[in-house]
């Protein structure tokens, strides 16, 4: 059995499931945001602020930021194993992607609770 140490859930099946669960979360969040924008063509700062500051929306945003991390990791990992045969290059690519995703998550949390 080939054991893989860089995939998300340590098993292909778990990654497969994670990819899909996070996909549904992100799809729902995207549709919610697009729905809000379509319904507010003349959006003011106050409307936007009170929407994003609503606890339910904050929680949905936080969950989505987490989901982006997981979803993008599985996708980027798959890309890396498809195109980068040498272990060193593949590892560097994965490390760079992982670092970027963690930075984005922390940045996102900062934005969500910083206004």
């Amino acid at each position: 059995m080939v054991t893989n140490v860089t995939n998300l859930g340590r098993s292909g099946l778990s990654d497969w499931m994670m990819q899909r669960v996070t996909a549904v979360m992100l799809g729902a969040y995207f549709l919610m945001m697009m729905g809000f924008f379509v319904c507010h063509p003349q959006l003011t700062y106050e409307e936007w602020r009170s929407f994003m500051g609503n606890s339910a929306v904050r929680i949905a945003s936080l969950i989505s930021f987490l989901a982006i991390g997981g979803h993008a990791w599985v996708g980027l990992w798959t890309i890396s194993t498809d195109y980068f045969k040498p272990t060193g290059i593949r590892f560097l690519f994965q490390a760079a992607c992982g670092l970027a995703l963690v930075v984005y998550f922390v940045w996102g949390v900062q934005i969500l609770w910083g206004f």
Binding site: R49, M52, I79, G108, F115
Partner: peptide, 19 residues
């Protein structure tokens, strides 16, 4: 998917500026 990953900092910047 990869393009969206590359665009994430743009989206985060927009979100930051908007709030």
């Amino acid at each position: 998917g990869f393009a969206i990953f590359l665009a994430l900092p743009i989206l985060l910047w927009v979100l930051d500026q908007s709030l």
